[in-house]
Computed example of a mutant assay.
Amino acid sequence: MPRPKPTSYERKPRVPRPLDEEKLRALALRYVERYATTEAKLRTYLARKLREREWQSESPPDPEALCARFVALGYVDDRIYGEAKARSLSARGYGARRVEGALRQAGVADGLRANISETLNPRQALLSFAKRRRFGPYSRTEPDERTVQKQMAAMMRAGHGFDDVRRLMQAASGAELEAEWQDDDAP
């Protein structure tokens, strides 16, 4: 009589196979082909994999050299990642502070973060956020004082500056505000 299949509580946990140079490189390559990433995020991923699995080779692992090689080959580019992430967050209506925090968390260098932040239009992002959430002049109804405070708090949490948020909430219409800010941004 055949033995029945073991139930889930009888199964032994799968033991991960130890890594060597080739397996580590394959893991890194699979990671960068699947996800847009920075050098710091790749380094963190490789460090985690080395902690989770044993090292099989006699030479010590060198994830730093592997990360440097991927950067040199162009598989990982912090500038491209940072610009794409900043554009994405800005288009969704997030302000400069929120974008800066996301780039810092991803491991983008300080100077590069500053260069990327300069290319963003924070007022356009604020308008996008207000339109999407129907705040201020884009609201369908006249909000009460408590609703105005909540809306302002949401815009501040999204990384927008207080002066611009206050101006948006005081605007009579969205078109008037857009025209005013368009004139201010013109050289």
Rank of each mutant, 00 (worst) to 15 (best):
E10I: 07
E10T: 02
R14D: 03
P18I: 02
L19K: 00
D20F: 03
E21L: 11
E22L: 15
A26S: 11
A26N: 07
A28G: 06
Y35C: 03
Y35R: 12
T38V: 05
A40W: 10
L42V: 02
R43M: 10
L46F: 08
L46P: 00
K49Y: 04
K49D: 05
K49I: 06
R51P: 04
E52M: 05
E52C: 00
E52F: 01
R53H: 07
E54I: 02
E54G: 13
S59R: 11
P61V: 07
D62P: 02
E64N: 10
A65F: 13
L66K: 10
L66D: 01
R69N: 09
G74R: 03
Y75I: 00
Y75T: 01
V76P: 03
V76F: 01
D78A: 07
D78I: 03
I80S: 06
Y81H: 11
E83I: 14
L89Y: 04
R92Q: 15
R92F: 08
G93T: 00
Y94N: 10
Y94M: 14
G95C: 07
R98D: 05
A109F: 05
G111L: 12
R113T: 09
S117A: 15
E118W: 13
E118F: 15
P122Q: 05
P122H: 06
P122R: 04
R123I: 08
R123N: 06
R123A: 03
S128K: 10
R132D: 08
R134E: 09
F135M: 10
F135L: 14
S139P: 03
T141W: 14
T141D: 09
P143E: 03
E145L: 10
T147K: 14
V148C: 07
Q151D: 09
A153K: 14
A153E: 14
A153R: 15
A154Q: 09
M156F: 12
M156P: 04
A158N: 12
H160T: 05
H160Y: 13
G161Q: 13
F162Y: 14
R167H: 06
M169N: 02
Q170S: 13
Q170T: 08
A171Q: 04
G174C: 04
E176Y: 08
L177Y: 06
L177D: 03
E180M: 09
W181L: 05
D184M: 09
D184T: 03
A186W: 02
A186M: 06
